[in-house]
Nucleic acid binder design. Structure first.
Lengths: 139, 139
DNA sequence: CAGCATCCTTTGCGATACTG
DNA sequence: CAGTATCGCAAAGGATGCTG
């Protein structure tokens, strides 16, 4: 368990996600998803976008997250070079998390999507209602 | 199983994803993830970005996808108003899928992320190598 | 061709208890 | 405070077989 060869389910062992062979769009999207398409990464990035946080601060701000998933998410982001982890050798321990330049660049791209979502929420809701109505009434 | 009340695991029954109560960023991100953060949605949207496709064409172009997941993904996107599904009453059957205007708008936002990913692949790969090296050599 | 239904495996995640 | 280790469940997704 000391090296990366052994697969561990829960320990802080961040395996190489979908190392994609060919250089297709499919690959890039898979890459993107591996990095962001989990339950918490985007949210953590967004929060860190407004400034450095300690572990517990993040935990409080999200609070539906378990410490396990917060740790896992942060390690994942750290590994990808999106956030920095700074440990202060004090008691009680203090660890700060912040976005890197790379992470801030990604945040910008993410904001584009968030903005789009915000702008088109109603249209999507309407589409859903229409779809559901259509298939429950007749077919 | 005829209406939407019964939860079915595999049938084409697209339940309301995370209907979020409060109107926070957290909510919007959850919404965004519910729509895009599965294994195939982004890829399908990208493909349809270059033109209408039939079911089988999509299946061929992705080909690691199962028909089940392709169907599920398309229904999901259709329900959200991102793609249209056009059935031609011919034998053998023919069904065309295409992006809606809404879907094309989303595609633009997605392209931003894909572009970012493409531009920073190397940095991320380097960050990973560094991280892994650091933690396997000393700590 | 374009699905639907069923079974089964895998993965993600939460809950909980423990530690430097 | 900031984690780590283990357990267990639920949801996602794959494989296969059947149908109009």
């Amino acid at each position: 368990m000391e090296d990366g060869t052994t697969k561990s389910a829960t320990h802080i062992d961040v395996p190489d996600p979908g190392s994609c062979v060919r250089d297709t769009t499919s690959c890039e999207i898979r890459d993107l998803l591996d990095r962001l398409a989990d339950k918490w990464s985007l949210l953590v990035i967004e929060l860190l976008g407004s400034g450095t946080r300690r572990f517990t601060e993040l935990h409080r701000e999200i609070d539906e997250i378990s410490q396990r998933m917060l740790t896992l998410t942060l390690r994942h982001l750290e590994r990808d070079g999106l956030v920095t982890r700074t440990v202060y050798p004090v008691v009680p321990p203090r660890v700060d998390y912040a976005l890197t330049d790379l992470g801030r660049g990604l945040l910008v791209a993410i904001e584009g999507l968030v903005t789009w979502t915000r702008a088109h929420r109603d249209e999507i809701a309407a589409a859903r209602s229409g779809y559901d109505a259509r298939r429950s009434s007749s077919g």
